[in-house]
Design a protein around this nucleic acid. Structure first.
Lengths: 89, 89
DNA sequence: TCAATAGTTAGATAATTATCTAATTAGAGT
DNA sequence: ACTCTAATTAGATAATTATCTAACTATTGA
């Protein structure tokens, strides 16, 4: 887990809202994009950053890409910061 | 609590390490700066962002400024993201 | 195989963030 | 008042990040 990548991913409001949306269940890229006033390519970049951080996982179903939330990375990163372990990057 | 400001503050490795250093106890600006290969003005900017986010509090002692960690904001922000409440900015 | 749909990748530009040097403010001691 | 030390603010520049349009890839179904 690259702690730096995780917190960098969490720093953008759109990306945090994507995670919030995914808390209700998996969702396709297009469906997620529909919640924002941004173009699909822009959202695609955000998806990539979340995927790099392993905060989400992707699965293809037909022509759609379904994004799943990966809660555990979130918890790992946060407990790392709160806990005793040194988190120097 | 401005959730956006908090996560923005947490996004930079230097700022996260400042928080980690403060976990061992309060520390002056100069003492903190000694841990990094950056100029004092640069560190000062980082301190400001942490203070804006209320992740640290400052207290003056003589000519020194002593920084204290404010753990509770950290926990608030993180539980906000993990929990049920909508965190739309 | 052609067309339609879903999504991504490439490349350019605008906006934001990090960093430095130089100058300034604030307090303590002489 | 003067000087020293600690730290900040201002202003400029470099580096990074976000966003868009245009073009491309992949899958499905007629």
């Amino acid at each position: 887990m690259r702690i730096n990548t995780v917190f960098e991913a969490l720093s953008h409001p759109v990306r945090r809202q994507i995670l919030t949306l995914l808390k209700t269940g998996p969702m396709s890229a297009g469906e997620l994009a529909g919640h924002f006033d941004l173009t699909k390519p822009t959202l695609s970049v955000h998806f990539n950053k979340l995927r790099d951080a392993e905060l989400v996982a992707v699965e293809r179903r037909g022509t759609s890409l379904i994004y799943h939330l990966n809660m555990s990375i979130l918890e790992e990163a946060l407990s790392g910061l709160l806990g005793k372990k040194d988190q120097t990057p």
